[in-house]
Amino acid sequence: MHEISRLLNIPRSTVSGIITKWKQLGTTATQPPSGRPRHMTERVQHAEAHSALKSPTICRVIS
């Protein structure tokens, strides 16, 4: 690992993490997050849309 990190000029901890990920998953691709996605209620969507109208440069509405 030390030789790899020196050749690629990246920290040893990064090399170690990549090797560990490869051994566990067989890939280094980013995996989807675990758990169920959050459910946005209609009230939250309305509040976000309202704040985006007040300040469109700061917020964006996700449709």
Rank of each mutant, 00 (worst) to 15 (best):
I10M: 05
V44C: 05
M40R: 09
T57P: 05
H39P: 00
I10E: 01
I58K: 14
S5T: 05
T30I: 11
H2P: 10
A29N: 12
I62C: 07
R6N: 09
Q24W: 04
A29E: 12
G17M: 01
T14S: 11
H39T: 11
E48G: 03
T30F: 06
G17F: 06
S34M: 14
I10N: 00
T41H: 12
I58D: 07
V15M: 01
V15C: 10
T20R: 15
I4K: 04
V61M: 08
A47W: 05
K21W: 00
N9I: 09
N9A: 14
R60M: 06
Q45W: 00
A52D: 00
Q45S: 02
G35K: 08
V44Q: 02
R60N: 10
P37E: 10
S51D: 00
S34T: 15
Q45C: 00
L53A: 15
L7G: 14
T14W: 04
S13N: 08
S51E: 00
R60V: 03
T14V: 09
K54I: 03
I58M: 08
T27G: 01
M40S: 01
K21M: 03
I58S: 10
E48S: 02
E48M: 13
R12N: 15
I62N: 11
T41K: 08
G26N: 04
K21R: 14
P11E: 04
M1D: 15
H2N: 10
A52P: 07
T20L: 13
H2K: 09
A29T: 09
P11W: 11
T20I: 14
E48V: 00
S55Q: 09
R43L: 05
A29R: 12
I18Y: 01
V15I: 11
R6P: 03
S63T: 14
G35F: 07
N9C: 05
V15Y: 02
E42H: 13
L53C: 10
P11M: 11
P11G: 04
L7W: 15
H39A: 13
L7M: 13
A29Q: 12
Q45E: 09
I58T: 15
G26E: 08
S63A: 15
P11C: 06
S16I: 15
I19R: 07
P37Q: 10
T41S: 13
I4N: 03
M1R: 09
L8M: 06
S55I: 11
S5Q: 11
G17T: 07
P32A: 11
T27V: 10
L53E: 15
I10T: 03
Q24V: 02
T27W: 01
R6A: 14
L25G: 06
C59V: 04
G26W: 01
I19N: 10
K21E: 04
S55Y: 13
I58G: 01
T30S: 14
P56N: 12
L8Q: 05
L25F: 08
A52F: 04
T27M: 03
I62P: 07
K21L: 00
H46L: 04
I18H: 02
L25D: 08
S63C: 11
V61W: 07
S55P: 02
T14E: 08
